[in-house]
Design a protein around this nucleic acid. Structure first.
Lengths: 202, 202, 202, 202
DNA sequence: TATGAATGAGTTTTCATTCAT
DNA sequence: TATGAATGAAAACTCATTCAT
């Protein structure tokens, strides 16, 4: 994938906001072009079609958010709380700050039919990455995963489930609802984790 | 709200599929009309605009799914498992069978800007209803909610979180992923519930 | 021309207002029907087409206004002022009160292409009638017309010109503008008449 | 107001004819486009909407006719006849030659509801200009206006009334009717003027 | 690289009219 | 006499895309 020229990068920056707000179908290249300081026809000097622009934006958004998730888990290190807690706690701030994340979620859930395959692959990679980070963190924190890899699997799934739940909460709920939801899910999650740990210590 | 004539009902039946598959923006009244066996101009004898049709379909879908959820919780009665378990276990089958549910979720997450308010209110009612059913079932099953209403709140939130998580899973994941996710979430959820029950029995 | 049933008369009463306000092209049979307390399709039980309704309304309006003009000149009798003065003084009140007059003028000036001929004939009859009333009143009032029929012609033309001027003033000007215009035109008209009378008395 | 590109000017030239002949409502952008040698979608590269095109055409027409009126009065200079006589004598030729004038009158009398304000303002300016030219010419020709400004007012009003009368005559009458009307109105007008002049000379 | 102009295909919507009931 | 339903035609307008410059 060729690197973007400054102009093309600017277009992408505008487009990600537009796509995040309106979705693929309700976004108009004309509006994106004007917001990027040029005319519709000029977009075609940078991207060969609406689909191509969208796909490119998707890849950029994906890259951004993957980096962000990586940073989150790295920063977490040995902090208190359950593994992956920092990540889910940061999600709401990230969602508000990052059009990339807003775009990513909207697109992942309802991708334009023509490029569904690319989108799905990309988003699965994103989730797989989160899963892996969580897995690693859990292995680092507890002793039982070595003996009970099938339990680790379960908690990975549950963690991803919680992440999904929070994602969708971000999309349609008010922030205070999000906070309650996060607390409740973390509570049951950590309860369950602590049961396992308690059992394995005996 | 006036009852639908057979023709109008047929249009709605076609439209709910179309909207569920393509979303508001990518749906064309022309296609809906043809699939309903008429020309697009004839739609306007039944609905005054695309928005009006969409809103009507939304209300129908909402009604259907509220009835379905009610039936789920009623049927559950004193069965084994955590409260609300039947509902979440049925979700995947329901999603595949019911265009209304597919439509409802898609619309709730990314409503057309012009009728966002109606959609949001409707979907919140849907979730509130689920919450209430869960609450009642939990009160019936356990003794602690009377003494610890704040704990009940937490579990209500967690349950809704799980429901949301499964909703989004339905939207973009493969069925086997859904099954794993459901199992994992139910596991942590029932773990946490059982801790609370255990504590309150002592 | 068959007499109208009560329903048909009601439709015409509604239609004349609508046509007067919006013109032929911007008037919709649907709106007219609803305002007449029925559905669009029912109109066709009374009139065979939009054109037919329009034409019928035109004839009614024409009849009304011809009667009104007749009454005006009759009432004038031997009053002070120039011949036809009562008529032009009443015009503004009539315009405000009578949708038929508003309709008549709008239609006469810009008739729908398909029925231009009928409209033109009708309106010319209306003006010819006014001319005749003025002619008769002038002959009754003064002695010179007998000796100078060609002068009578000129004043007939001038009177009709004034009437046209006031018509158009009604259409687009404010009432106070109308009043000034009327006064000014009557002034030059009566000046000219009085010159002629003075000369013929010598 | 940005100057028109050649293409846009061509569209306006076509549109003014079309609007003059059919009025706003009965004019179709499709027809205008085809007559301008393009497809209707291409119109939107030049004008943002039917209203915008119409308004632009109106401003052009207004400008043209204002220039024409100015030229008429200028050319008149010290010619024989009453002030403003050249203008009213030229009206019929102008009407036949200039789609702009035909458009202007039609639009002024029955403006499309959405842009009534703009139209009204513009046409009032047009009439005010005529009035002013007449006023100046009258002041230049006669001595009495200085002493009797209120009389000047009256004759301005009467002159505008005659202009209006002739306008409407152009719209719906045959040329020979116009000629008779013009002669008659000029006759009473100049009679009245001469009375005043005679009186002021004594 | 940028753009003005053009366009085919498509959108939602309105309209007058028809017809079986 | 009235109407619900249907429809072909047309309206204004939008869109992604192309192309010569």
């Amino acid at each position: 994938m060729k690197p973007l020229t400054p102009s093309a990068a600017n277009i992408c920056a505008v487009a990600v906001e537009h796509f995040a707000d309106h979705g693929y179908d309700a976004s108009s290249l004309n509006e994106i072009a004007v917001m990027a300081g040029m005319r519709k026809a000029s977009l075609y000097a940078h991207f060969s079609s609406k689909d191509a622009l969208f796909e490119r934006v998707f890849k950029i958004a994906l890259g951004h958010e993957q980096q962000y998730v990586a940073a989150c888990f790295e920063e977490e290190g040995g902090r208190a709380g359950v593994p992956g807690q920092l990540h889910v706690e940061c999600l709401i701030g990230r969602y508000e700050a990052s059009a990339h994340l807003r775009f990513l979620l909207r697109t992942a859930y309802f991708p334009p039919a023509d490029i569904r395959a690319v989108i799905t692959l990309g988003f699965e990679a994103y989730l797989a990455q989160i899963r892996q980070y969580f897995q690693r963190a859990t292995r680092d924190r507890y002793t039982w995963p070595a003996a009970h890899p099938e339990q680790l699997e379960v908690f990975c799934d549950a963690y991803l489930g919680i992440v999904d739940s929070l994602h969708v909460e971000l999309i349609y709920a008010a922030p205070q609802t999000y906070v309650k939801r996060l607390a409740a899910l973390l509570r049951v999650f950590s309860d369950s984790l602590s049961m396992l740990e308690g059992a394995s210590r005996d």
